[in-house]
Simulated assay, not measured.
Amino acid sequence: MATAEAAPALIRFAVRAAAIFGALLVCVPLHYLWPLLGRRSPWPRRFLGMVGRIAGMRVRVRGTPLTSHVLFAANHLSWLDIMLVAGASGAAFVSRDDVARWPVFGWLARLNDTVFVDRSDRRAVQGQVDTLRAALAGGQPVALFPEGTTEGGTGLLPFRASLFSALFPPLPGVRVQPVAIDYGAPGSEIAWTDSEAAGANARRILSRRGTVPVTLHFLAPLDPGALGGRKAVAAAARAEIEAVLRPSAAGADRL
Rank of each mutant, 00 (worst) to 15 (best):
N75L: 00
R208V: 12
P42S: 09
V214D: 02
L30P: 07
V104Y: 01
L216R: 01
G49N: 03
L25M: 10
A137L: 13
V28H: 02
R101T: 14
P186T: 04
L71R: 09
Q128L: 08
G148P: 01
Q128M: 13
P8K: 13
D130E: 15
A185Y: 10
G184P: 05
L255C: 12
G38M: 09
R40Y: 12
R230L: 09
R230T: 12
G22W: 11
A252Q: 10
G153A: 04
S89P: 09
R12A: 02
G225S: 05
A197R: 01
P29I: 08
A235I: 01
A4C: 14
P141M: 08
A220P: 10
A6D: 15
H217Q: 11
A200V: 12
N201I: 11
L111W: 11
A243K: 06
L157N: 10
V174G: 01
A6F: 15
A23T: 12
A74S: 14
S95H: 03
L77V: 05
V70A: 09
L222Y: 07
R46H: 10
L163R: 07
N201M: 04
V142G: 00
L144C: 01
V176E: 04
L111S: 09
A235C: 05
R110E: 15
T64A: 15
I54R: 00
M1S: 13
N112P: 02
F21T: 12
R160W: 06
G90P: 03
K231N: 15
A239E: 10
V85H: 11
G155L: 03
D253T: 15
V125I: 14
M1Q: 06
R110Y: 08
T193P: 00
D121Q: 14
V59M: 00
L227I: 07
H217T: 04
R204F: 03
G127Y: 12
L36W: 14
P170G: 07
E189H: 12
M57P: 11
L255A: 14
L66M: 13
S68K: 05
G152C: 05
P221A: 08
P141S: 03
A226E: 13
A6K: 14
I54C: 02
D98N: 00
V117E: 00
M57C: 11
A100I: 01
R96I: 00
Y183K: 04
P103N: 09
N75M: 03
L132D: 07
H76W: 08
R238E: 03
L157G: 02
L108A: 12
T64K: 14
A185V: 15
A86M: 05
H76L: 09
M83D: 08
F47S: 01
